[in-house]
Design a protein around this nucleic acid. Structure first.
Lengths: 197, 197
DNA sequence: AAGCCTCCTTAACCTATGTTAATTCCTTAT
DNA sequence: ATAAGGAATTAACATAGGTTAAGGAGGCTT
C-alpha cells in the first residue's frame, strides 16, 4: 500500500468536509500501522504527538478512570483523522487509548512537521479547522446529551446515530459510551422490549 | 469606543493564544453591543450567524431542556470570542442563549464575511484553529468530568477552576453548570463543610 | 421598620443507577 | 460433544441525586 492508495481515503474524508485538496503535496514522512482487532494504536498515558489517519477499519477511544472503570469516549470509523488533539496541541500525555474494533490500516505523521506544512498551505489549514469544528460540535452534542437526557434517551440516540454499530459491538462498550454500567443498559433494553410488544 | 480601543482586547486574547496579529487588517463591518447584567446577547432558538467578541464583562451560555430546566454550558469572561460555533458553521438555530452576568461590551461580525477574510490571511485562520483547539479541549475535559467524576468532585473542580466566580455567581448557576439541582449542590456543600470541621 | 423577593438550606420521600452475585447464553477450543 | 470463558440477563440491595415543600437569611423598596 503506497501513498497513492492512501490518498484516496484522505480525499474521501476531505471531500465530505467540502474540500478537494491534493494530498500528494503533503510530504512529511509517514508511517504505516496495521492494527489487529482488539489491539491498541496507543495506550492511555503515552505521549502521542503524532497525527493518525484511519484509512480502513473501526476504533474506539477508551479511557480508564482512577477507579479502574472503562469508558468509551468515541467510536470512529474510517476514513477519518484520529488521535488526541489535546495531546498533540499541549504535548501532554493522552487521556485515552485507541483500540481497534476491527483490523485497521492507519498512517501517521509527526504532528509538528505536519502542522508546519499546513501553515504553508491555507487549504490544509482550512481542512484542519473544519475537522476541529466538527469534533467540537460532536463533543458539544455529547455534553448536551449527558446533562439533558436520561440514559434511556442516550441509548436510543446511540441506536439512531450508529445503526450499523448497534448489533456489532459488545453492549458493555455501548454502555460505557452512554455513561452507564452494562447492568443498567440491560435493564433499559428489557424495558424497551416490553414496551415494543 | 472605536476600533482602535477594541483592538486591544483582541490583541490580549490572541497574544494569550500565542499570536500577535494586526487586527486593524480586519475590515469586515462591525457592530457594538452593550449588554446589561441579566440581559441576553441572543436567545436559544435564534439564528446567530455572527461571530461575537466579548471585550469586557462575564457571560454564561444557558440552554433550556424540553422539560424547561435550565443548564449552564459555559462561563466565559473577557477577552474572548463567544457565540455558537455550531450555529455559525451549520447555519442552524442556536441551542443556547448568552446571558450577561455583568454589564458587557461586545463587538460582532457577520460570520461569512469574517470567514472569507480569514481565508485571505493565514494568520487569522491559524488563530481560529487555535481557538477551536481550545474550546474542543475544554469540552473534552467536561465530557470526562461528567462520565468519570461524582457531582461532589465536579463541584470541587469548579471551585478550583473558577476561584474568582465561586463567590460571585448564584449557586443555582453553579449547580446547573455541574449538572445537578441547587438542592443537591446544597447537600454537597453541607457535607463538605462538615468534613472541614 | 415592614414587606417582599430571591436565594439558600433542610427534610421527607421517590427514582434511576450502581453493586454484587447467581444464572443463562454463546462462542470457541479441545 | 463437551468443557471453558466471556457476554448478557436478572434479582436484591445500596446510594446519589431528583422532587416537593417548608422555613430562614439577606437585600431592596416603600
Amino acid at each position: 500500500m503506497d501513498r497513492m492508495q492512501l490518498q484516496n481515503s484522505f480525499q474521501a474524508y476531505f471531500n465530505e468536509l467540502g474540500y478537494d485538496i491534493d494530498w500528494q503535496r503533503l510530504t512529511v514522512p509517514m508511517d504505516i500501522h496495521v492494527i489487529r482487532k482488539g489491539d491498541y494504536l496507543f495506550q492511555q498515558g503515552d505521549f502521542a504527538n503524532r497525527l493518525f489517519f484511519l484509512h480502513s477499519g473501526l476504533v474506539r477511544y477508551v479511557s480508564v478512570s482512577d477507579e479502574g472503570k472503562e469508558f468509551t469516549q468515541t467510536f470512529a470509523k474510517s476514513p477519518r483523522i484520529i488521535g488526541s488533539t489535546k495531546a498533540m496541541v499541549t504535548e501532554a500525555r493522552v487521556l485515552f487509548g485507541i483500540q481497534a474494533l476491527e483490523d485497521c490500516m492507519v498512517s501517521s505523521y509527526p504532528w509538528r512537521a505536519f502542522y508546519e506544512q499546513m501553515r504553508q498551505d491555507i487549504g490544509f489549514l482550512e481542512c484542519y479547522a473544519k475537522f476541529l469544528e466538527r469534533i467540537f460540535i460532536t463533543k458539544e452534542e455529547r455534553e448536551n446529551a449527558f446533562v439533558k437526557h436520561s440514559a434511556e434517551r442516550r441509548y436510543l440516540d446511540f441506536c439512531a446515530d450508529y445503526p450499523e454499530l448497534k448489533n456489532v459491538i459488545p453492549q458493555q462498550q455501548i454502555a460505557s459510551y452512554i455513561g452507564i454500567t452494562p447492568v443498567a443498559l440491560s435493564r433499559i433494553r428489557q424495558k424497551l422490549k416490553w414496551h415494543r410488544d
